[in-house]
Amino acid sequence: MTDQTGSTTEEGRMRRWRRTHLGTEADRATFRTLHNASLATPALRGGLTVDSAERAAPHLQALLAAPALAITDTDGLLAWEGIGTHHQEQVTKLAEGTLDHGATRFYDRVDLECGQAGCPLHTAVVSPLVVEDHLVGTLQVYAPNTSAMMVRAADEVATWVSGQLELAELDASRRRLMEAEVRALRAQISPHFIYNSLGAIASFVRTDPERARELLLEFADFTRYSFRTHGEYTTLSEELRSVERYLLLEQARFGDRLSVRLSVAPEVLPIAVPFLSLQPLVENAVRHGLADAETGHISIKAADRGSECLIEVEDDGAGEDPERVRTALAGGNDSVGLGNVDARLRNAYGDDYGLVVETAPGAGTKVILRIPKFAPGVHT
């Protein structure tokens, strides 16, 4: 049996269901709640500021279905959303009780004085916003009447907002830690490398002025990149370009004693990597590759491995005592930043993505790192 369109009765029934069935009222209410929460999240993950509060307030008001809502920090009003803007002058005073006692407080029409005729806002619920056990502000809900359900809803939303603000603080702490680690790594860039590079450049000034000029430009670009002040991450392409500049300067110094082989899959060049994540590994390879040896060979590979990029930095030099490497990865006796890079990789991608070092005395050293092509919060 078919309907007028020629489809079967069952197909027609399924088509009508897709067009008309939007779920129960409870389903729709759940969707609205989740939707408003998702809209408020990006603003709250920016921390508690005027801008983030103003962007989050409309969605929090809709989430609570309240006529008016206010967000404060410990100093005063950050954002007001809804009717009754004349009540803004009372916001800071109402916040004081909650900030002093750390608990939700309810205010009725006696507390919420209003000289404007017809104003429907007669009650307020003020709930604390807490980040890492510190009171940082309040969420205030204004309504004609307040029920036990309204108080509970305000408390629940304030707890959720506090959670988002705590995640924002964790993000900020992580960024500060990453920045501190990069500053520490910059401080570890060998002064000897700088002096030796300038010495090598100076040696070409008379014999090969054009090469001296080119090396000086490479040195300028290398130092400019190494000491740049923006961004925790860069592309693998930019990181490798800086490594190439470093190796050009080292080859100008060591000549034929140092040979380098570079093998990079083009498809991994755009991926994001922690800033200055390869430079310390290559510097370590040069130092060990030429230690007590007439010549040294350095190999740098970057291969596509599906959802990851596999990077290897290898030298055929003196090798290391594995115990000393373990100490370096733990942050001790690390003059070239091995532990620094390992810590930043784990911080960015998780403990499964720390450095892997294969070495032994007299057997050279290979350092392996895996970089996910996509990771939350990682972008250039």
Rank of each mutant, 00 (worst) to 15 (best):
T5L: 08
T9I: 15
E11W: 08
L22I: 15
E25M: 03
D27A: 12
L34S: 00
P42H: 01
L44F: 01
T49M: 04
R55H: 12
P58W: 07
L60H: 00
L60W: 03
Q61R: 14
L63G: 05
L63Y: 02
L69F: 00
A70C: 03
I71V: 13
D73R: 08
D73Q: 08
D75E: 12
G84P: 12
H86D: 11
H87K: 11
V91Q: 05
K93S: 10
L94R: 06
T98Y: 05
L99G: 03
L99M: 12
L99S: 05
L112H: 05
A117D: 14
P120N: 08
L121N: 10
A124F: 07
S127G: 03
V130S: 00
E132H: 10
V136N: 04
G137F: 00
P144R: 03
N145W: 05
N145R: 08
N145P: 00
A148T: 15
M149V: 15
V151D: 00
D155H: 06
D155V: 04
D155T: 07
A158Y: 07
V161G: 07
V161N: 07
L170Q: 04
S173A: 14
R175N: 06
M178H: 15
R183I: 14
A184Q: 14
L185T: 14
H192M: 10
F193M: 03
F193E: 09
Y195F: 06
G199L: 02
I201T: 04
S203T: 05
D208W: 10
E210C: 03
R211H: 12
R213Y: 12
L216W: 03
D221W: 00
T223L: 12
Y225G: 03
S226A: 13
F227E: 07
F227T: 11
E232N: 15
S237H: 11
E244I: 02
Q251A: 11
Q251E: 13
A252K: 06
R253C: 08
L258Y: 09
V260W: 13
I271G: 12
E283N: 06
H288M: 11
G289N: 08
L290A: 14
A302I: 11
G306C: 12
E308Q: 14
L310C: 06
D316R: 00
G317P: 09
E320V: 08
D321L: 04
R324M: 02
R324G: 01
R324N: 01
R326W: 07
R326K: 13
A328S: 08
G331S: 09
G332C: 10
N333L: 12
V336C: 09
G337Y: 09
N340L: 14
D342R: 11
A343S: 15
Y349F: 15
L355D: 00
L355K: 06
E358F: 11
P361R: 06
A363R: 14
G364Y: 05
L369I: 04
L369K: 05
K373M: 11
H379A: 10
